[in-house]
Design a protein around this nucleic acid. Sequence first.
DNA 1: AGTTCGATCGCCT
DNA 2: GGCGATCGAACTG
Length: 196
Amino acid sequence: MKPLPRSFYARPTVEVARDLPGKIIAHGRCSGRIVETEAYLGIGDLAAHSAHGPTHRNRVIFGPPGHAYVYFIYGMYECLNLIAEPAGVAGCVLIRALEPLEGIAQMRRRRPTARRDEDLANGPGKLTRALGIGLKHNGADVTCGPIQVFAEENQPVFEIGVSPRIGITKSADLPLRFFIKGSRFVSRGGGSSRQR
DNA sequence: AGTTCGATCGCCT
DNA sequence: GGCGATCGAACTG
């Protein structure tokens, strides 16, 4: 399998976010199928880290597409984003949940509290922990680096669901969350009720 | 099944 | 100095 080319990412953020579910993300011997994403836009998206222009923390978001933006939050968790849009334009996609595929034993070692496979990577902080991704990967090139993103050879047929983003307080009603309908591996951001 | 709350720290104002 | 794109335990019902 070959990594997705940079041209995949050099598109409007919403298109990239909608097309990433179903793709495979791998780090080391662990891999999983992306089942949930959120788009974070540049100008006018007050929920995005890039809302107020470039800073030292968020500068990767303004850089070239196909790179990883990893940030630290709540004093304990790292979240993984993939940069979209051409260089100079802000836009990134938060990876929110994975269906674990390979290296499940190692993921369990990294996340001993997960009781079921569904709990290994069904949240943005969980999947980075499960895959061993952290702040040191901020800025990494995902078209050729240690983190790789592939198209599956025989991608299963699925429908994409759309909803507001989870866990934010600003611009909270925009339909910028994309997920595989019916997947048992999507997060639920605290609340419950099954996604259809 | 649904809600609340504590843990904990880098970054921006 | 305070906030926050989270998680998991504890609690209620």
